[in-house]
Write a protein that binds this DNA or RNA. Structure first.
Lengths: 219, 219
DNA sequence: AAAGGTATCACATCATTATGTGATTCATTT
DNA sequence: AAATGAATCACATAATGATGTGATACCTTT
């Protein structure tokens, strides 16, 4: 799954920067630059031919820009990890890039060592980004208020307190015996509670009850 | 808005670690530790009295845990930047912490220099987190846009296709027999797959496996 | 005082799950 | 050619779970 060295393709219209990246990657153990292009016009063919592990993608390029390139790549080979690489912390682009499957977002002023680290991380299942970008990403997430509002416990099934307690212990993976212990009651009582829970939830096994409990936010 | 030095409060039940953080912060220019506590029981009063800029919050503490503490803090003083600080990259907690307004998520094995950097970032509008946590956060984002772009399920447990399939059938409430039917294999084979799944997920019952599968977005 | 719901416990039985050991086939990697 | 891992099946046993039928005690609400 993870290969060594990491095969990298760069899209970057600035010749100096492209050259700089090329030198950096060539001089670094474990990284192999297998292609560097000025824009994304032929990204589809290039991906199919080169099969890189990681793509470093400038956003602001003439003719075919990086967001477009990203989308094309994720369409034809979703497994390739694309790192966006840009001068600006531009919210719009960040949002679009992340939603289109970019795995990270780096600024061009990232020091070389961090850049290599980021490429490594991207290849190994991480999503490298600066903390200020991360903050912007977090702002796209449901806020705490929303979360609060969206997460009331559902008790449309009219479970009693005890039943809810036992259900939540089930969700946490406790056996009947463990529940009996934790609640200080007999296993038979646990049984009878669980029987009642099944009736109320209209299920016939622990598994179903647990799945329903989590999905419907009962516990 | 940004103050100097950065005033920090730590919640951490491990005395060694608490002491270590204390020494680190005292020895670092620009950082001032103004409080360190073993749990979040009195977090409300402490916040009102100390008014820190950044809180470093352990998650797994006895009596009053870090998620609870986080929620209390964001309720009474939303401006305080809370950094979660934990041993585990546990999806459940990450999701809850981020949705509750945590500004970052650090692992305890973060080297001291990075830790200071993270606190600095948190205070200056960033959201420091490791790239692997960032990846998990990305997975929480609505992957609107093309259905093509599917952010990958968490497969950090390295389940095979077949195992994932069977796990998802379990989550839907199927018994071994039903799974055997639907997959066209024998019950014994289902058993052996499930045994393997348990090993990989480090669980010992259907219930635990199902809970983990849902919480960690494995299926 | 009666009725209804909750929480508790017991006994019984059958079904399902968990765990161990072992084996075969196929494809991939070394 | 050998090693590895995935997927398949079999047999066996112990533990756990599902379901049924009662029963007692304690609250509320009627």
């Amino acid at each position: 799954m993870t290969s060594y060295p990491i095969k990298i393709v760069v899209y970057e219209d600035n010749p100096d920067l492209r050259e700089g990246l090329s030198v950096l990657l060539k001089g670094s153990m474990g990284f192999e630059l297998i292609g560097a292009f000025v824009n994304c016009e032929k990204v589809a063919e290039q991906m199919q031919e080169l099969k890189p592990d990681v793509v470093l993608m400038d956003i602001d390029m003439p003719i075919a820009n990086g967001i477009k390139g990203l989308k094309t790549i994720k369409q034809i080979s979703p497994a390739i990890n694309v790192l966006m690489f840009t001068v600006f912390e531009d919210n719009e682009y960040i949002f679009e890039a992340i939603c289109s499957g970019a795995v990270g977002y780096l600024l061009k002023r990232t020091p070389p060592a961090r850049l290599l680290e980021a490429i490594y991380d991207a290849h190994h299942g991480g999503a490298p980004m600066t903390s200020s970008i991360a903050r912007k990403v977090l702002q796209m997430l449901p806020s705490q208020q929303n979360a609060m509002v969206k997460l009331p416990y559902d008790n449309s099934h009219n479970l009693t307190e005890r039943e809810t307690e036992i259900l939540s212990l089930l969700v946490k993976g406790n056996s009947y015996k463990m529940i009996a212990d934790k609640c200080g009651i007999s296993m038979d009582t646990v049984r009878s509670h669980i029987k009642k829970i099944y009736e109320k939830l209209h299920v016939h096994s622990q598994t179903e009850a647990v799945a329903k409990a989590i999905h419907e936010r009962i516990v």
